[in-house]
Simulated scan of single mutants.
Amino acid sequence: MTIEGMNHFTVISSDLEKSKAFYSEILGLHAGYRPPMDSTGAWLYAGDQKHSILHIMAERPMPEQAPGVIDHMAFTASNLQSAIDTLKQHNIAYKLNRMQELGVWQLFFYDPDGAKIELDFAAEEPAPVE
């Protein structure tokens, strides 16, 4: 077996429309084809990619304890200043780190249901005006 890449993450949502709006307005993902299923949800896509990268499941109770050990989901992104401006416009708290060794920017924040998101930006991106 050879792993060729990450396929998608799945998050549970207490409000499907709120989650779709968050991932659309904040991350720029868009809803696309989702095959018929017995459950309610959405599949979100980035740009013109042909496979979904985030699945949202709704009408399922939020777990009392986190199932498993996944800490966060990370996406490669560009335009750090725009990302920070968007988070500020939506009053979303964030933490920005610069990895000293690589110079890469890491931007952390949470979705409406508490899923931790990391956006990684190239070292060449200018320092944002906060």
Rank of each mutant, 00 (worst) to 15 (best):
M1Q: 12
T2D: 11
E4I: 15
G5L: 06
G5M: 05
N7E: 12
H8Y: 07
F9H: 07
T10A: 10
V11K: 02
I12G: 06
S13I: 02
S13L: 04
S13W: 05
S14Y: 02
S14N: 10
D15Y: 04
L16W: 06
L16K: 07
E17A: 13
E17H: 07
K18S: 09
S19C: 01
K20R: 13
F22K: 03
F22C: 05
Y23I: 02
Y23N: 02
S24Y: 08
I26E: 06
I26K: 06
I26V: 15
L27A: 04
L27K: 03
L29V: 00
A31H: 06
G32P: 05
Y33F: 14
Y33M: 07
R34P: 00
P36R: 04
S39W: 13
S39E: 13
T40K: 12
G41A: 04
L44A: 02
L44K: 00
S52M: 01
I53S: 01
I53P: 01
I53W: 03
L54C: 01
L54T: 01
M57K: 11
A58T: 03
E59P: 02
M62A: 13
G68R: 07
V69P: 04
I70N: 10
H72I: 06
H72M: 06
H72A: 08
A74Y: 02
T76H: 12
T76L: 13
A77S: 13
Q81V: 07
Q81L: 03
S82D: 11
A83N: 08
D85T: 10
L87H: 07
K88C: 10
Q89M: 09
Q89K: 14
I92A: 08
I92W: 08
Y94G: 03
K95W: 08
N97K: 15
R98S: 07
M99Y: 13
Q100V: 13
E101F: 10
E101N: 11
E101I: 11
L102N: 12
G103P: 04
V104T: 14
Q106C: 09
F109R: 06
Y110A: 15
D111P: 05
D111R: 03
D111L: 05
D111M: 06
P112G: 07
D113N: 06
A115M: 10
A115E: 13
K116S: 13
I117V: 14
E118A: 09
E118T: 11
F121L: 05
A122Y: 03
E124W: 05
E125T: 02
P128R: 05
